[in-house]
């Protein structure tokens, strides 16, 4: 009996057959591993190129306010401040608008209207940044200078320390407006997904108890989707921080540490876009890359937190 059975494959044979069956899994896995290592490659590149700056000033680079390539003085604070001010203002404008769109699309819009509207909002996300920048230079900035800034300055908002004398058209304020337009699609579509993930019976129960549609939306849907909306805002903030061309073309590009939105300023992305290509000295290049490293770390952190929150809140069974 045992003679008729083929000899069991040895260890070598089993390994070979295993490989023959599994090679594809390992080959695609190797490329997936490559994607994982790209993140390490980015960190390594940014770190190596920015080392001279860190060894010259250490973390003090982040709070230094001088930027003078001729004298060799470099500090990141005016750029970090400009980026934070414009991104936060953009978020402040974009979140209510995005939430309104998300509620409209998920709770109110009739089915036939919903898909075309989603399509339009997604087209907004497809317009290249440099086209928004072009529009910003020639259309939005003059308009903001002539009408919007005087109007804001004349309103009660003008009493806030953030709004001084209306200045030229290229200001932190103009950049914030463009950023707001550009991050609305991502915040709106992620919020909409969060709202749609709320179980329908929850809302129906509220309606059955006599709530109006708005009351059901506010007390049930929004409460349920809070986490998803928050992570949408975090991811939107990440986009705003890293946005380059539209900001560079409208922020004014002046090294100017201020919280007055009606003045020209500078952002982290804009200084890199403007100077890296022509930077001559090693310390100049490394200071620009150092700003890039800080930008990468902030945006990596925001993106990770946003995605993790999204995974947790949108996971089934929670």
């Amino acid at each position: 009996m045992s003679r008729s059975v083929a000899p069991l494959p040895g260890r070598d044979g089993r390994v070979r057959r295993h490989l023959r069956q599994r090679w594809f899994r390992y080959a695609t896995g190797a490329l997936a591993l490559l994607v994982v290592t790209v993140v390490l490659l980015i960190v390594q590149q940014l770190w190596v190129q920015s080392r001279p700056t860190w060894s010259e000033w250490g973390l003090g680079f982040l709070v230094r306010t001088d930027w003078d390539p001729v004298q060799g003085e470099f500090g990141a604070l005016p750029f970090i401040a400009g980026t934070l001010l414009t991104s936060l203002m953009a978020l402040l404008i974009a979140v209510p608008i995005s939430l309104g769109i998300a509620i409209l699309l998920s709770e109110y819009a009739p089915r036939g209207l919903r898909d075309p509207l989603i399509f339009v909002v997604e087209l907004l996300a497809a317009v290249p940044s440099v086209v928004f920048g072009l529009w910003g230079i020639f259309v939005l900035a003059p308009l903001v200078q002539r009408h919007v800034m005087p109007a804001v300055a004349g309103s009660p908002l003008g009493l806030l320390p953030f709004f001084g004398e209306p200045g030229p058209g290229y200001t932190l304020f103009t950049a914030s407006l463009i950023l707001a337009v550009m991050i609305i699609p991502i915040i709106a579509s992620l919020s909409r997904e969060a709202l749609m993930a709320v179980p329908r019976d929850q809302k129906e129960a509220a309606l059955a108890l006599g709530a109006t549609r708005w009351e059901a939306t506010r007390h049930v849907i929004l409460t349920y989707a809070k986490g998803g909306i928050f992570s949408a805002a975090v991811l939107g903030l990440g986009r705003a921080l890293g946005e380059t061309m539209a900001t560079t073309m409208t922020i004014g590009n002046r090294v100017n540490l201020t919280w007055d939105y009606f003045q020209s300023g500078y952002s982290m992305t804009a200084i890199i876009a403007n100077e890296l290509r022509e930077a001559a000295s090693e310390i100049h290049v490394s200071s620009l890359v150092a700003i890039g490293l800080v930008l990468f770390l902030i945006s990596f952190l925001l993106n990770s937190v946003g995605r993790l929150l999204l995974m947790r809140t949108n996971a089934p069974g929670t």
Binding site: A32, L33, V35, V36, V38, V39, L41, I42, Q45, L46, V48, Q49, L235, G238, R239, L241, G242, E243, T244, T269, I272, A273, L276, V289, G292, L295, F296, S299, F300, N303, S304, G306, R307
Partner: peptide
């Protein structure tokens, strides 16, 4: 982790990709 990092990378500032290619 490939999925997670892909999502994070998709949201990364595009200028950072430029700096990496510049250095490399």
């Amino acid at each position: 982790s490939a999925r997670f990092l892909s999502e994070v990378l998709a949201g990364l500032p595009s200028i950072v990709a430029g700096i990496v290619a510049y250095g490399l």
